[in-house]
Design a protein around this nucleic acid. Structure first.
Length: 552
DNA sequence: GAGTTTGAAACT
DNA sequence: CAGTTTCAAACTC
């Protein structure tokens, strides 16, 4: 099991979550906040290592579902070689990762189910020393990137080692260095001497270029790992053999291979990448060929992959703010021209509800709204908010302000805003705030609902595509079965074959009813397969032409 | 594979 | 908190 799945609660700040609306980071991905070392110990007491029976796991339901997703990527488990620590100290990577030793080369190992009591004690003792001992060492920092920007799908995260390394002799360019090992740059957290693992370092560049020839992918993997929270307690990605990993990674001559390797290790970041060879397409291709590919590179890809971009999140936050502002003006009885625009947009949205990709459409529309309002209001805040502020509407509620905390360039609130004649009195603010926040939360809920539906639809579409891809083969198989069946009368065989054809037609018609652009869109990164062309040809009445293999 | 180097973890 | 020891991984030969 990868260290990231080691039942290790990450440092989640609810306050931070609310304030920053960080939809893209790890905040939403780790549902459990451990309040104390003791509870952390409980979380760790039974690792979610596949080798361990699920019944032993003390992981709560949401946690399990989270890791079930992650488990879609099979990973090899690093085998430790501990001799003196009984695998009950952080020296042991298995222990540090929160997993039982399984097939390791360790001696006198107590990191197993048989020694659960001892193990638990060790965990508690470790946590006593350092409550963060089992937390990921590498974390993405949500603030805008300054120098050491990691260019991963334009995600503005700085990936840092929480404690920082303390290297003296390795120049932080060997795997002794935890930062280097995690494929990240040293940060201000580090106390290293003679560090050469920084952005712009010639030594680092030379090293990476000479060995891999692809710095981008190199760094990307690290960013992926950290952003996914996949880097575990020991600060590394999957604890598969570091040496092997290193060699594979650096010596891989194919950038695509590297990408595959890196991304399969940290599957969910694929979501951030709208293009490239994806697991989904691989899976579809595999199924199209009628084979299940048992590959270690098989990855999980969220149905929402490619839908949520950084920009969408920004827009979404702005929309929430806009809604808040809109509610404000509604409450105060003031109506602004921009509201009409928003209302029209809302109406459009209603009309398109139920269609695929509406979440994206919504974002795009509201982006457009934002832009139009920016133009109108000459301020970098969409719609009613900007208008409300500039035109002397009352100030935002604390909740709204919190939502806008990351938009320092977009809003400039002054006391003057409160002096407008149209303002409610201070004593009325509470009620307005409540309304305002209710409105924003409703908007948030609706949007999340849309997003969930969008993902669900994509998943269904994909399943359908897979079925279709299988259909010709399946149909042929059924027909052959019927033909070869000796104890069925002739008319019975015909009926059997007929039914097979009907089933196929039902599937194909259903597919034809769907938005085809959605099925093969770039969001899916799904190249039209043979069956895709066939279906298209069938639905349009045209001949497939280049492919006559259907139903043979 | 044995020996050395290295830096994190543990300990004082 | 700083210095020292222990430890296991990384590295070299």
């Amino acid at each position: 099991m990868e260290s990231g799945a080691a039942s290790i609660p990450q440092d989640i700040s609810q306050k931070k979550l609310v304030r920053q609306l960080d939809f893209t980071g790890t905040l939403f991905r780790v549902p459990i906040v451990t309040a104390s070392p003791a509870s952390a110990a409980r979380e760790l007491s039974a690792p979610s290592e596949p080798a361990v029976p699920v019944s032993q796991c003390s992981i709560s339901a949401p946690m399990m579902s989270f890791y079930e997703v992650k488990d879609a990527t099979p990973k090899k488990h690093k085998q430790c070689n501990c001799r003196n620590s009984k695998c009950l100290k952080l020296y042991c990577e298995c222990f540090a990762s929160g997993v039982y030793c399984n097939g390791c080369n360790c001696s006198n190992c107590c990191n197993n189910a048989e020694n659960e009591a001892v193990r638990r004690e060790a965990i508690e003792s470790t946590l006593e020393r350092n409550p963060n001992a089992f937390r990921p060492k590498i974390a993405n920092s949500p603030q805008p990137v300054q120098d050491s920007k990691v260019e991963v799908g334009e995600l503005p995260f700085v990936v840092k080692h929480n404690k920082g390394c303390h290297c003296k002799k390795s120049g932080c360019l060997k795997r002794y260095c935890e930062c280097f090992q995690a494929n990240i740059l040293c940060s201000e957290n580090c106390k290293c001497v003679d560090c050469r693992n920084f952005d712009g370092s010639e030594d680092r560049r030379a090293l990476v270029h000479s060995e891999s020839g692809n710095t981008q992918v190199y760094i990307q993997q690290a960013a992926n790992a950290a952003i996914n929270g996949a880097i575990g307690s020991s600060g590394y990605g999957s604890p598969a053999s570091k040496k092997r990993k290193h060699q594979e990674f650096l010596h891989s001559t194919s950038a695509k291979d590297q990408l595959d390797h890196g991304l399969s290790q940290f599957p969910e970041i694929n979501c951030a990448k709208a293009s490239g060879h994806t697991a989904l397409s691989s899976r579809a291709a595999a199924q199209t060929n009628g084979h299940v590919i048992h590959s270690s590179k098989l990855t999980y890809r969220s149905p929402l992959a490619g839908i949520i971009q950084q920009e969408h999140v920004k827009i979404f936050c702005k929309v929430l703010v806009a809604q808040s502002g809109r509610q404000t003006t509604t409450s105060t009885g003031r109506r602004l021209p921009e509201e009409k625009v928003i209302e029209r947009e809302d109406k459009d949205k209603e009309d398109t509800k139920g269609q695929n990709g509406k979440a994206v459409q919504m974002s795009q529309r509201e982006s457009a709204t934002a832009h139009s309002n920016e133009t109108n209001a000459s301020i970098h805040v969409p719609g009613a908010v900007s208008a409300g502020i500039e035109k002397g509407a009352r100030p935002m509620s604390p909740g709204t302000m919190a939502l806008m905390c990351d938009e320092p360039d977009t809003i400039f609130l002054t006391l003057d805003n409160c002096r407008s004649p149209g303002f409610p009195r201070k004593e009325n603010f509470t009620e307005v705030y409540a309304q305002q926040e209710r409105f924003v939360l409703m908007k948030l809920r609706d949007s999340l609902h849309d997003l969930a539906n969008c993902g669900r639809m994509k998943e269904e579409n994909f399943n359908l595509i897979s079925m279709i891809a299988e259909t010709p083969r399946h149909e042929a198989s059924v027909i052959n079965q019927a033909k070869s069946c000796s104890d069925v009368p002739a008319h019975g065989k015909d009926e059997y074959i007929h039914q097979a054809s009907i089933s196929k037609d039902i599937i194909i018609n259903k597919a034809a009813g769907l938005n085809r652009q959605e099925l093969v869109s770039e969001e899916l990164n799904f190249k039209p397969s043979h069956s895709e062309h066939q279906i298209h040809a069938k639905s349009t009445g045209a001949s497939p032409g280049h492919n006559k293999t259907q139903s043979t």
